[in-house]
Simulated scan of single mutants.
Amino acid sequence: MTIALKTGLILCFGYFFWLMLKLTLEYVPAQSDVAFLMIKQTEVETRPEYLSFFYIHVYSSIFVLIAGFFAIIRMNFRTKKLHQYSGKIYVFGLLFLSAPTGIYMGLFANGGFFSKISFVLLGIFWWFSTFKAYQSVRGKNYTTHQQWMWRSFALTLSAITLRLWKWIIVYFFQLNPMDVYQIVAWLGWIPNILLVELLIRKKIL
């Protein structure tokens, strides 16, 4: 990967990360009736654990997103320590915080059964690919580790691509909000993982 391409990726990611950070800051301080939670009051009121799981997911995911990026993008050898420390934050935060809470939240996703299935599968694959990345680096199989990390980070980026697809569909099509949610629930991560798998098979990643 050339320096120019890496620089472009960093700038692109930086822009979308800033947008995600702005969304996260809407939940600071933690409240039960702001932003997305306004349409999840049934869960908030009937399931005492929902709010805690939601905030664990929201707060941990922003750190997982930035840590994953620094673990994936290595400009030169001097960033090896950054790669290692970022990777540890990424793996711990994802395996123990973001993915488990994401799976739980998927059980109550908007859009009905098909949306719920998508988000639960996303959470399971997200956890599994990250665990495989961790397992392979522990076994010093660095090529396999890199491939699993790319798969994992492709799923991490679903937080961004889901919202991007939502904007595109809402802008160009007049659809019921729940129909949009069912569509982007799958579009948010399926193209990501297919693209990464193709790049791995082409030995580009």
Rank of each mutant, 00 (worst) to 15 (best):
I3M: 13
A4K: 15
L9P: 00
F13H: 05
Y15I: 12
F16T: 08
L25K: 08
Y27S: 03
Y27K: 03
A30T: 09
Q31A: 12
I39N: 14
Q41R: 04
T42M: 07
T42R: 13
E43I: 10
T46P: 00
R47Y: 12
P48R: 07
Y50C: 02
L51F: 05
I56T: 11
H57V: 07
S61H: 03
S61V: 03
I62M: 06
I62S: 02
F63H: 07
V64E: 01
G68K: 04
F70A: 12
A71N: 14
R74K: 15
F77I: 12
F77V: 12
R78T: 13
K80D: 10
L82S: 06
Q84Y: 12
Y90D: 01
L97E: 02
T101M: 08
G102L: 03
I103T: 02
G106K: 03
L107T: 14
S115A: 15
I117W: 00
S118W: 00
V120D: 04
L121P: 00
L121A: 09
G123H: 00
G123T: 02
W126G: 00
W127G: 04
W127H: 04
F128I: 14
F128D: 09
F131V: 08
A133S: 13
A133V: 03
Q135S: 14
R138K: 15
Q147H: 14
W150F: 14
S152C: 07
F153Q: 01
L155R: 02
L155Y: 00
L157S: 06
Y171E: 13
F173K: 11
F173P: 05
N176Y: 07
P177I: 03
M178A: 14
V180R: 01
Y181Q: 13
Y181G: 02
Q182V: 07
W186R: 06
G188R: 01
I190H: 05
I193Y: 00
L199Q: 07
I200H: 02
R201L: 12
R201T: 11
L205D: 05
